Amino acid sequence: MTGKNRNHRIDNIEFNVADIARSKTFYGQVFGWTFTDYGPAYSEFSDGHLAGGFTTTAAVRPAGGPLVILYADDLAATQQRLEQAGAEIVLPVFAFPGGRRFHFKDPDGYELAVWSAD
């Protein structure tokens, strides 16, 4: 992607986490993200489209920020993978105009959502 195509788009998301290895295992197992470590306090993740990072340089702040919403072709299979990885489902699947989604908490308590158009 060129700089022109990136103008005004979300470019990076960063999570303060308690344990980088645990976060890499969780998100890698469930969503297949890849990682590049930049020292012991930072690891970049990529989902193949958007990059972000896990850092231990600040306190974990799981509440009060924007809601990160991921897409899944198969909502039920994704929920099952999350539950197997230890995620807590905090809002069961519900329908909304355009699809369905559910919310979960990751190992550090961050609430995220997964949606599907099916």
Rank of each mutant, 00 (worst) to 15 (best):
T2H: 06
G3C: 10
G3W: 12
K4R: 13
K4G: 09
N5Y: 15
N5Q: 15
R6H: 09
R6A: 12
N7T: 13
N7D: 15
R9Q: 01
R9T: 00
R9V: 00
N12T: 14
N12Q: 09
E14I: 12
N16C: 11
V17R: 04
A18R: 11
D19T: 12
D19H: 03
D19G: 07
I20M: 00
I20Y: 00
A21R: 05
A21D: 15
R22G: 07
R22P: 02
R22D: 04
R22I: 02
S23C: 12
S23I: 02
K24F: 01
K24A: 05
K24Y: 02
T25L: 05
Y27W: 01
G28N: 04
Q29H: 11
Q29G: 11
Q29C: 10
V30A: 15
F31T: 06
G32Q: 10
G32Y: 08
W33V: 12
T34D: 13
F35K: 04
F35N: 08
T36G: 13
T36R: 11
D37C: 02
Y38T: 00
G39A: 04
G39Y: 02
P40E: 13
P40I: 02
P40G: 09
F45D: 03
F45I: 08
F45W: 12
S46H: 06
G48Y: 06
L50R: 13
L50D: 11
L50S: 15
A51V: 13
F54M: 04
F54P: 10
F54I: 03
F54Y: 06
T55G: 10
T55E: 04
T55W: 03
T56Y: 01
T56A: 00
T57E: 15
V60N: 08
V60E: 02
V60P: 00
R61E: 12
P62K: 08
A63S: 15
A63Q: 12
A63V: 14
G64F: 07
G65W: 04
P66E: 09
P66R: 07
I69A: 07
L70R: 01
Y71L: 06
A72T: 04
A72R: 00
D73P: 11
L75A: 07
A76Y: 06
A76S: 13
A77M: 11
T78N: 04
Q79E: 14
Q79R: 11
Q79C: 13
Q80H: 09
Q80I: 10
Q80P: 08
L82W: 06
E83G: 06
G86V: 09
G86W: 02
A87V: 08
A87C: 10
A87W: 02
I89C: 09
I89G: 03
V90H: 06
L91S: 11
P92K: 07
V93C: 10
V93A: 15
F94L: 08
A95H: 01
F96K: 00
P97I: 12
G98I: 05
G99D: 06
G99Q: 03
R100E: 09
R101P: 00
R101W: 05
F102A: 12
F104P: 09
D106Y: 02
P107I: 14
P107F: 08
Y110K: 09
L112A: 15
A113V: 08
V114L: 01
V114K: 05
W115P: 01
W115N: 13
W115Y: 10
S116E: 05
A117W: 14
A117V: 10
A117G: 07
A117E: 15
